[in-house]
């Protein structure tokens, strides 16, 4: 018996050693900054001197004085509203195409997944910037087609949509999950519906969609969180401009922290973003009882 206990003990330690890289990373690079940022959000801290406690001042300034925050919040919400449905619809459509049995389908699946492998990378953002600059390839194509050129990045009314297109283009990971879900839909349901004379469109809305709602829900949550935290594309492509039209909350947070050295204020912004994400996620979970179908629960 003693030997067995010792074996367990040894195995426990081994397990801890195996997960140590993640554990240390999590504690030092995620948990500690998470807690520390809460403390700093109640301080005035410019990195060059010690933080001083200021109570709720940062939060009050954020909500009552700083108009830029409201603009950033608006930009972030618009960005989320554009990108999340856009990405999900595109991912589902491509997944439906990829679900067909045809020659070389695996190659197509890989090709469509590639943009997601570069997801959020600086290199892709730079590529996007070069493509959409005034003398970029997109305007060259428009000129070749005798269409007027567009100031994709210079026009404040268009710049945000250009950034959104980049985000939507990276639909691969959602697509793969949709594809897996589509494969799980029992063929017997379609066969039964066809016998009853249901059209393909009706099958799609009455069988396919309800059957994959758990994956739609999962993708919706993940992409919403992702969109509310967006930073890289706005930072690399437009630096938040022109006229703050792409100044998402992530950009504001970065600039307050590393350009203006208001780390306490930036921490308060990060907590507001966290709370917004938490509320949105909770609301989505609440709503899920009405539209997400779980086979084992037998109800929506």
């Amino acid at each position: 018996m003693k030997t067995k206990v010792r074996e367990y003990k040894k195995r426990d330690y081994m397990g801890l050693i195996y997960i140590a890289p993640w554990l240390v990373g999590f504690l030092l690079l995620q948990l500690y900054p998470f807690i520390a940022s809460l403390f700093y959000s109640f301080t005035q801290y410019n990195i060059m001197s010690e933080p001083t406690f200021v109570g709720l001042t940062n939060y009050i300034t954020l909500f009552k004085v700083d108009n830029e925050f409201w603009n950033s919040l608006k930009v972030t919400i618009v960005y989320t509203i554009y990108t999340v449905p856009g990405k999900l619809v595109l991912a589902l459509l491509v997944a439906l195409l990829m679900n067909k049995q045809m020659k070389g389908i695996n190659l197509f699946r890989t090709i469509y997944y590639i943009p997601s492998l570069f997801g959020g990378s600086v290199a892709v953002a730079i590529l996007w910037k070069l493509m959409f600059m005034d003398d970029g390839v997109i305007n060259a194509l428009l000129t070749a087609l005798h269409l007027p050129q567009v100031q994709w990045l210079g026009n404040p009314d268009i710049a945000l949509r250009t950034i959104c297109m980049l985000e939507i283009w990276q639909f691969g990971s959602s697509m793969v999950m949709f594809l897996a879900a589509l494969k799980q839909v029992p063929q017997s349901l379609y066969e039964a519906a066809q016998i009853d004379g249901a059209s393909k469109l009706r099958c799609f809305f009455k069988i396919t969609i309800p059957q994959i709602t758990p994956i739609i829900f999962f993708n919706l949550i993940m992409q919403t969180i992702n969109a509310l935290q967006s930073f890289t594309s706005a930072f690399v492509i437009t630096k938040g401009g022109p006229l703050k039209s792409t100044y998402v909350l992530g950009m504001k947070l970065y600039n307050e922290a590393f350009k203006n050295y208001k780390l306490g204020y930036a921490s308060a912004i990060s907590w507001v973003i966290f709370i917004i994400i938490m509320i949105v996620t909770l609301l989505l979970f609440r709503s899920s009882t009405g539209w997400v179908y779980y086979e084992d629960s037998d109800e929506f």
Partner: peptide, 24 residues
């Protein structure tokens, strides 16, 4: 076993926390 693992995890968290808290 679960208790032990929890204890070890908590101990690590505390050590990390102490390291983190003693900022100045």
């Amino acid at each position: 076993k679960l208790k032990k693992v929890t204890a070890i995890l908590l101990a690590i968290t505390m050590v990390a926390g102490l390291t983190a808290c003693g900022k100045t």
